[in-house]
């Protein structure tokens, strides 16, 4: 349980980090970025990951901001999850992201773990990718030719894989503030507090005149990436925001899932069942928060 040898770099800026990535790419050196390290360190310890060079972003300035500009909340990739959890801005304006943050690991992990790390790591059981799909978040990445924005639905490709190039780093994630009249919920099922979820659901539910608006639902821990439950979303649009609609939509959404993952702790069938139950519970919880 000790990492294999690697060289260590701690550049002073994101630009320097990108230049290092480019140099290692040219030289054929296997380099890896470390942010908070709370997912990478276990992989190094178990030698699932054996990079030749580790590039630590901890000294790179200007990557840990949390702020708002024109209704868009921007979180620097190196802001810690505890900083996001304790941010009055995020708590007030984007409660779904706030609630998701509190579900990540334990306090000790959130103190060290970065917000950006969970996006770049792209674990299918992670809460943030599902929230990113629900909120239509954007990822700001920096590469040798400059910055670009990647929408969430183009960012997560498959297990532990994003659409970032090998010479790009994630510098910021952006999300809209939650509109008034929109309910939200995130629930997951894990064996123990702080474990990765066997399955989870995040959603936003706008309600007007007692009817569901443009509902967005995503499940995590089920397929290779977080997935939108579009069948459930369509089943709800224009329907009364009541238990009957919620139960029908949850069943349809779970049924339409691609074959879920199977592991020692949960069969595909069990995960599908969890998605149905959690979707129905989240819809009821969100309806209570929609202000109608």
């Amino acid at each position: 349980m000790k990492p294999a040898s690697f060289d260590y770099y701690s550049p002073a800026s994101a630009d320097e980090a990108v230049a290092l990535l480019q140099k290692f790419e040219d030289d054929g050196v296997d380099a890896k970025i470390v942010a908070g390290g709370q997912s990478l360190m276990p992989m190094l310890a178990m030698r699932v990951a054996r990079p030749e060079a580790l590039i630590d972003l901890r000294r790179a300035v200007g990557l840990d901001h949390i702020g708002e500009n024109n209704g868009v909340i921007a979180v620097g990739a190196m802001a810690s999850k505890s900083a996001a959890e304790e941010s009055p801005l995020i708590r007030a304006k984007q409660p779904l992201f706030h609630a998701a943050t509190r579900l990540v690991g334990h306090r000790q992990i959130r103190n060290r773990g970065s917000v950006g790390g969970s996006f770049a790591h792209a674990d299918p059981a992670s809460e943030y990718p599902a929230v990113a799909l629900v909120l239509g978040m954007e990822m700001k990445v920096l590469g040798p030719s400059g910055p670009r924005l990647i929408p969430a639905d183009e960012f997560f490709v498959t297990y532990m894989t994003t659409s970032m190039e090998s010479t790009e780093i994630l510098t910021e994630v952006r999300m809209p503030a939650l509109p008034a009249g929109t309910g939200w919920a995130i629930q997951e099922f894990a064996r123990r507090n702080g474990d990765l979820a066997l399955a989870g659901v995040a959603l936003t539910l706008p309600v007007a005149g007692g009817k569901c608006g443009d509902v967005r639902i995503a499940a995590f821990g089920v397929n290779a990436t977080a997935v939108r439950l579009t069948i459930a979303e369509e089943a709800l649009r224009g329907q009364p925001a009541d238990q009957t609609s919620f139960a029908r939509a949850a069943a349809a959404g779970a049924q339409a899932l691609e074959e879920p993952m199977t592991c020692l702790h949960a069969s595909a069938e069990y995960r599908r069942h969890l998605v149905q139950t959690l979707t129905a519970r989240c819809l009821a919880e969100a309806a209570g928060r929609s202000g109608h």
Partner: peptide, 16 residues
């Protein structure tokens, strides 16, 4: 505690 915050010392490198 690292800078007053609880942390797993096995999930942090000494250089960090």
């Amino acid at each position: 505690l690292i800078d007053g915050r609880s942390a797993r010392s096995c999930l942090t490198l000494a250089v960090q």
